[in-house]
């Protein structure tokens, strides 16, 4: 593993009984980098994301993660306790549907504090102070600290997911179609927030999206998937302006120009 990669994926496969899934994936992710996985439904991009995030067990291949201290972790053969610890501390996961990523029956403050409590923080006052701080950072009025996420708008719920994940200062965040359910006007705000947090925190983000416009504005690199395989990858502007693979050309030519 190169000393500067945060995630190293080699020949990784996770296939379903029907033959769909992702196969023989090679991928490197670098600290502070936003990488978008694009492709149509069924291309295997979400399966790949879930497999990388430890939510699915790959059938073959290797997957390694380097933590902040520079220690490498074998995420497939390593022990589950460590992986869960990493998932809590070093990773975040933002889902398309906020219901999958938030606890809807507890307050925003409790949502943000959960990871801190899982890591052993036991001071209510400090937890609240951090939660309030994070609400501000994701542009939610701190007065909403004790409100239930159900009372939030879709855009606020996505931002709350971000806060809930970033509170433990992770180095890698997985995002699955985070803007999928958002109005276009709200999308822009979300993208701007993500871009700013990437700058401020040196986050690496692995984002699944079918929206090439999102990739254009946010991603350093873009990976194109079809039928479970990576068919093309490179700098985002190169992929979008000079696509090489027939499928990428089809995707790019299908964008409705604003």
């Amino acid at each position: 593993m190169r000393s500067d990669t945060i995630l190293e994926v080699r020949q990784l496969s996770h296939l379903y009984a029907n033959g769909q899934g992702c196969r023989q994936i090679d991928l490197d992710l670098y600290p502070g980098e936003v990488l978008c996985l694009v492709g149509e439904s069924g291309s295997g991009k979400s399966t790949l994301l879930d497999t990388l995030a430890g939510r699915r067990v790959p059938q073959s291949g290797s997957l390694r993660f380097r933590d902040r201290q520079g220690t490498f972790h074998d995420l497939i053969h390593g022990d589950t306790a460590t992986r869960r610890q990493l998932a809590r501390r070093e990773w975040g996961h933002v889902f398309q549907n906020p219901r999958d990523g938030l606890r809807m029956n507890v307050s925003a403050g409790a949502n943000i504090s959960e990871r801190l409590m899982a890591l052993g923080q036991r001071h209510y006052g400090h937890l609240r102070a951090q939660a309030r701080d994070w609400l501000e950072r994701v542009e939610i009025d701190p007065a909403r600290l004790d409100d239930l996420p159900a009372s939030f708008s879709g855009g606020m719920q996505q931002r709350l997911q971000i806060a809930r994940n970033l509170v433990t200062a992770p180095s890698l965040v997985f995002m699955d179609e985070p803007t999928g359910g958002l109005d276009v006007s709200v999308q822009a705000r979300f993208l701007d927030l993500v871009r700013r947090l990437v700058h401020e925190h040196g986050l690496a983000i692995l984002m699944v999206t079918h929206d090439l416009g999102v990739a254009r504005l946010l991603a350093h690199r873009t990976v194109v998937m079809q039928h479970g395989r990576i068919v093309e990858s490179g700098l985002t502007d190169q992929i979008l302006d000079d696509p090489q693979h027939a499928y990428t050309q089809l995707l790019v030519s299908s964008i409705v120009q604003a």
């Binding site: 490179g234 700098l235 502007d237 190169q238 302006d241 000079d242 090489q244």
Partner: peptide, 9 residues
């Protein structure tokens, strides 16, 4: 120009 910027391969 785009080739020089590695925008075109």
């Amino acid at each position: 120009l785009k080739a020089l910027y590695a925008n075109y391969l």
